[in-house]
């Protein structure tokens, strides 16, 4: 049990320190690296309480996919320069900081409400209406309730994500004129007759090829 709590404190310490470093560190790319470290240590904590499936899914989805895209965006956009402009002393009267303050105030009060109303519930396992068996693996038990009791909610959340994905594509897609695309079918189905022309060229006059 001692080893267990030692590991718990190590992982939670890493999680908290890296969460603080995400906001504190000056380099945006470093922030994303700390975010990744945070995700990894939280998934370790999940595994330690026996929720191995959740821990692995956390790694695959957040660290393997979402954080890669974060990193991508941060590296490509060069956010570090903009950040310097926003918080420099010669602030040009932009609206970023008031809006940012408003949003962070709202989140702060929400957090206070949540933390104020939050308490441990030692008899949680007994008071649940769902029957949790300790015999089966937690992958199986999650699957059992996710696809039976909560199938509607599960499907609806899937639809919401799909709509969000399509919406993002529709909003950012713009058709560019003059882009040359390769079509395999067109290339392969090209016959000799289309490729080679016999042109009667008049003397001392050029031939137009494009026509």
């Amino acid at each position: 049990m001692i080893a267990h709590s030692v590991f718990f404190y190590i992982f939670s310490l890493i999680a908290i320190v890296s969460a603080v470093m995400v906001t504190v560190s000056k380099n945006t790319v470093h922030s994303v690296f700390f975010l990744i470290l945070d995700f990894i240590s939280i998934s370790c904590l999940f595994i330690m309480i026996g929720a191995e499936f959740l821990g692995m899914i956390m790694l695959i989805v957040y660290v393997g996919a979402v954080a890669v895209l974060f990193l991508f965006v941060v590296m490509m956009l060069n956010v570090a320069e903009q950040k310097g402009q926003w918080f420099s002393s010669r602030w040009d009267g932009g609206t970023h900081i008031p809006v940012g303050l408003l949003v962070s105030l709202i989140i702060f009060f929400e957090l206070i409400i949540v933390i104020g109303g939050w308490k441990y519930k030692p008899d949680l396992l007994n008071s649940l209406s769902i029957n949790i068996s300790t015999e089966v693996t937690n992958t199986r038990s999650i699957g059992n309730v996710l696809y039976t009791d909560f199938i509607l909610l599960f499907q609806i959340s899937g639809m919401i994500l799909l709509v969000a994905m399509i919406g993002a594509i529709v909003l950012t897609y713009r058709e560019r004129a003059g882009v040359k695309r390769q079509s395999y079918v067109k290339q392969i189905s090209r016959e000799r007759d289309e490729g080679v022309h016999l042109v009667e060229a008049e003397r001392n006059k050029g031939v137009k090829i494009d026509a």
Partner: peptide
């Protein structure tokens, strides 16, 4: 899942 997670971290 562990194999898949670790190989996705490889990037």
């Amino acid at each position: 899942l562990y194999l898949f997670a670790v190989s996705s971290l490889g990037v």
